[in-house]
Design a protein around this nucleic acid. Structure first.
Length: 204
DNA sequence: GGAATCCACGGTGG
DNA sequence: TCCACCGTGGATTC
């Protein structure tokens, strides 16, 4: 059975500098980078996102009924302007650091609004279509109440839990989306949290 | 006893 | 065609 191991605390980063990152190798070529309180103006970013993103409540057919997706979502497509200048700066800083090749940038920004502890995402990997062997990178900025992001190897194994707090940055890279899956489980008590996931292209 | 985790369910889309 | 995907709720485990 799984037991929880907790990621060691990464040092606090100097706003938008990626010098203070802590990398955790997960195995099988997967890794996770964490920088605590990385995003400047996190309070303002949260307030702006909550207010200005055109949040969409989706429904999903699950077996015999139509069910609410337990979070609000919106995707900013390729090179669409983001609603807060700090997010534009974050996208540039992340692209420069992780995708130094001139032609590759973080382009899409998927936003999720977890209104309270009942909102969640089930286990999944962000693969590029079925059976893809292409590795993709996902950079996640979290604002608002802290929530746990859990990671576990596909096919079973010990799971890893990462706390995503206000202004924290988490980057999943290497084979992470292919060989591992992740989830944000429901919890008994939590306030609102918004995550912004930057990807090199538009896949959700 | 409460919280976390596991499991089974089946329509959909790539 | 076929199979991985995903939210819920009850059971089970911690």
């Amino acid at each position: 059975m799984d037991y929880q191991s907790t990621l060691f605390e990464a040092p606090v980063a100097d706003g938008l500098s990626l010098a203070g990152l802590t990398r955790r190798e997960l195995g099988q070529g997967a890794w996770v980078d964490v920088a605590r309180t990385w995003l400047p103006e996190a309070d303002d970013v949260f307030a702006t996102l909550a207010r200005e993103v055109p949040w969409r409540a989706e429904k999903r057919q699950m077996y015999d009924r139509l069910v609410d997706v337990p979070r609000l979502v919106h995707t900013y497509m390729v090179d669409e302007p983001l609603p807060h200048p700090v997010l534009e700066r974050a996208r540039e800083a992340l692209s420069d650091h992780y995708l130094p090749e001139l032609l590759e940038r973080f382009r899409t920004a998927g936003c999720c609004y977890y209104r309270d502890g009942r909102d969640s995402v089930a286990w999944h990997g962000d693969t590029i279509g079925r059976g893809s062997t292409h590795d993709t990178m996902v950079a996640i900025v979290s604002v608002g109440d802290p929530r746990r992001l859990q990671l576990r190897p596909r096919g079973g194994g010990e799971s890893v839990s990462v706390e995503m707090g206000h202004g924290d940055l988490l980057v999943m890279g290497g084979s992470c989306q292919r060989t591992w899956e992740h989830a944000v489980p429901k919890v008994a008590a939590a306030g609102p949290r918004i995550s912004v996931q930057f990807r090199p292209f538009g896949v959700f």
